[in-house]
């Protein structure tokens, strides 16, 4: 793939001519639907996965705490008098009062992942969408929704890619502190779709997969903490197009737990 930015600059026509750009026009046209698609899927996945894993905590949760006390009277004489133990004859659990003031709170339960289109989004969106529409309605375009080739490609497993992966891993490794100890360690595997800004900060983070157990939820939190804590990521700026999206970013603690 040719280097897009340099071509954009060299191919830009003189101001005022209004000519469509010849070589880079396709680039944003393909990029936009893909971007919209991914964002659409990401939003859908948030509602499907994130929503339940990170559901707002139950807030009307009162726990009976007045149950167990030591009796004052015992037929065994204590050597030291018990320090003023509360005697609580009422063993009924406390009613569960609502917590309205907390429910009404505007504080966010989970920050909606940031889905602003990145700064380098193609200009003249409307025209691009029209172009796109034209393209999409062409009869030769396959319109099957279950086409198999639609999954995210991991990219060619070249040495270049593995260098990038190593560079990313060397950073996130220091920030990731998985919680050990789930009975089924596979419950602690989680994966994310991570979008990065050119400066290496997190643009958007979407949870793709986590087990529907307390361990899965805790593991998702641990992964998210690692991702945010480690930013900005130091990766070669000239290869931004290769690392702007890391998907799937998978955390698997099983090997660590065996040690």
């Amino acid at each position: 793939m040719p280097s897009a930015p340099s071509q954009t600059i060299s191919a830009r026509p003189p101001l005022g001519r209004g000519r469509p750009r010849p070589t880079t026009a396709r680039q944003p046209v393909l990029g936009l639907p893909a971007s919209l698609l991914l964002h659409g899927m990401a939003i859908a996945s948030i509602f499907l996965v994130f929503n339940s894993s990170f559901a707002p905590p139950q807030e009307s949760h009162a726990v009976p705490v007045e149950l167990v006390t030591l009796a004052r009277q015992t037929n065994v004489e204590a050597a030291a008098p018990p320090p003023d133990q509360p005697v609580k004859p009422d063993l009924a659990p406390l009613p569960a009062p609502p917590m309205p003031e907390i429910k009404a709170e505007p504080a966010p339960d989970i920050q909606p992942p940031k889905f602003e289109i990145r700064k380098e989004k193609p200009p003249d969106t409307r025209q691009d969408i029209s172009n796109l529409l034209n393209q999409l309605t062409r009869p030769e375009k396959p319109a099957k929704s279950n086409a198999p080739a639609a999954t995210q490609s991991a990219g060619p497993a070249t040495a270049m890619t593995s260098t990038l992966i190593d560079a990313f891993l060397s950073q996130i490794r220091n920030c990731w502190s998985p919680i050990a100890g789930a009975p089924n360690p596979a419950d602690q595997i989680v994966s994310f779709d991570l979008r990065l800004n050119p400066d290496g900060t997190v643009a958007a983070l979407t949870l793709l997969e986590a087990s529907r157990t307390p361990y899965g939820s805790a593991a998702a939190q641990a992964g998210s903490r690692a991702i945010y804590q480690c930013q900005p990521y130091r990766l070669p700026p000239e290869r931004y197009k290769d690392w702007r999206e890391i998907n799937p970013l998978r955390f698997d603690p099983r090997r660590m737990m065996q040690q």
Partner: peptide, 25 residues
């Protein structure tokens, strides 16, 4: 339309990363 046809479109290239080592703190 994009939403309808979405799965047929090639997605942007993304790298896949498996994190299997961490730093328990």
């Amino acid at each position: 339309l994009i939403a309808l046809l979405a799965p047929a479109l090639p997605a942007a290239a993304a790298i896949a990363v498996d994190v299997t080592q961490g730093n328990i703190q």
